[in-house]
Simulated scan of single mutants.
Amino acid sequence: MAQDNLVITPVSGKSDMQAFIDLPWAIYANDPHWVPPLKAEVRELLTPGKNPFFGHAEAQYFLARRGDRVVGRISAHIDRLALEQPVEQGMGPGTGNFGLFEAEDATIGAALIATAEQWLRDKGMTRVLGPISLSIWEEPGLLVSGHDHPPTVMMGHNSPTYQAMIEGAGYVPAKQLKTYELDITKSFPPLIQRIIASGEKNPRIRIRKVEKAKFDREAAIILSILNDAWGNNWGFVPITDAEIAHTGKKLKPIVFEDLIMIAELDGEPVAFMMTLPDLNEALAPLNGSLFPFGWAKLIWWLRKPKVRTMRVPLMGVVQRLQSSRMASQLAFMMIETIRLEAISKYGSTRGEIGWVLDDNQGMNAIAEAINSTVNKLYQIYEKPL
C-alpha cells in the first residue's frame, strides 16, 4: 500500500523484524516517561515458538516506510480462544485485533490501521477490537490519560496523538481500563482497619504467603482462582497451561513470597493477590539492553529490590463469594498484609492497582475505599469491518 510516498509492507526477515522492534526508540526519543523494554523480551513476544500465545493465535506485522526511513508499525492478529468466547463478553466469533501501533503522523496511522483491517477482513473477521498487544493478558488498551508519568511493569505507554488517529479511523470506545495509585505509607481509613481486624479474629480465615519452593503448585492454585474469578469478565480469554508455565518462568525473578498472598476460607483457597515490584524503575536506565553491564545491574537489583512503586496486576475472589462482604474483607486483609511488607522490606511508598475494568463495581469500590485515585486510563476500541 503506497500513499504520500508512504509504503507499507508485511514484516519479512530479520532486518524487518529488527526495524519493527527498534522503532519505538525513535518515536519516544523525546518522551521522558517512556520506559524502553528489553529488546530480547520484545523479540520473544513476537516470535511463534517462543511465545505460547501463538499456540492459539496468528499474527501479521507491518512496517510503514517513507524512503529508507521506518515511520510506523502495527500488528494484526487473531486469537482463536478469543473467538470461542461469548459475544456479550467482548470477544467472540469474528473478532480480530490490532496492536503494537506506532506512527509518526496521522497519515501513517490511518494507512497502517487500514492495512491491519484488510488483513483481518481477508481472514474472515467482521469486527476489530484494539489496540491489544498481543494478548488481553499482556498490554491491552490505548493510554488516553496519564501520559505525564511512567508506566509500571507490564503496562503500556503511547503517544497522546494516537487517540485522535484511532478515533479518526472510525473506532468507538468498547471498554475502559483504570489504574489506581495510592500512598501506601498512610494507614487505611478507620472503617477499613476495623474490617481487617475483624477478619484477623475470624478462625475460618487464613491469609498466607505463597511458597516459592512450591512454585508450580502455588501457580496452579492462583490460576484456578483466576479462571473462576475472571471467567465472566469482559474480555476474558482462558490462559493455557503453556502460557502459565511461560509467564511463571518470566516472572519468577520478580516474584517475592511476601508480596503474593492466598486467602483461605475453612482451609480452601478462595482469593489471591499478586504484587510485583516495579521492574520498570530498574529497566529505564538500561535502554533496552542487558549488555554490556545491564545484566549485572539488574541481577543486583533483583537480589533485594528497593523500589518506590509496587503494582498489583492481578487479584481475584472466587465467584461464589464475589457479592458477599467476605470478598471485600479478604481483599482488604491481603492488601494490608502486602502494604506493610512493601514498606518494611522494600522501602516502597506508592502502590498501583490495575488494570481494573470500568464496570467492575467490586474492585473499583475496594480501590476507592482505601483512598486510592485513578492515575491512568486505557481505552479499548471497536469497529465493525
Rank of each mutant, 00 (worst) to 15 (best):
K186S: 14
E167C: 03
T185S: 09
P160I: 15
Y171V: 06
D183Y: 00
K178M: 15
L182H: 02
T179D: 13
S187C: 07
V172M: 03
K178D: 14
E167G: 04
L182W: 13
K186H: 09
V172E: 00
P189W: 09
Y162N: 06
M165A: 11
A164W: 04
L191F: 02
I166Q: 09
P160Y: 11
P173Q: 01
Q193P: 00
S187M: 07
A174T: 07
A169L: 09
A169K: 00
Y180G: 04
G170C: 10
Y180K: 08
Y171N: 01
E181P: 04
P190I: 02
L191R: 00
V172Q: 10
I192V: 14
K186T: 13
I184E: 03
T161F: 05
P190H: 10
F188E: 05
A169R: 02
P190K: 10
T161Y: 12
A174G: 10
M165W: 11
K175E: 05
A164M: 00
I184M: 01
M165G: 05
T185C: 13
A164E: 08
M165S: 00
S187N: 12
Q163R: 14
G168R: 00
T185G: 09
V172C: 03
P160G: 11
V172S: 08
D183C: 00
G168L: 06
L191C: 01
A164Y: 07
Q163I: 14
P190R: 07
T179K: 09
V172W: 00
S187E: 15
F188S: 06
E181A: 08
P173K: 12
T185F: 08
P190D: 12
F188T: 05
T179Q: 12
K186D: 15
I184A: 03
K175V: 14
P190T: 07
G168D: 03
I166L: 14
Y162T: 10
I184L: 05
Y162E: 05
M165K: 04
A174S: 13
T161I: 12
I184P: 07
I192S: 00
K178I: 10
K186F: 01
K175A: 10
K186W: 08
T161C: 10
Y180D: 06
Y171D: 08
V172H: 09
E167D: 03
L191D: 10
D183V: 02
P189A: 06
Y171Q: 04
T185K: 06
E181S: 08
L191A: 05
Y171C: 06
G170Y: 08
K178T: 11
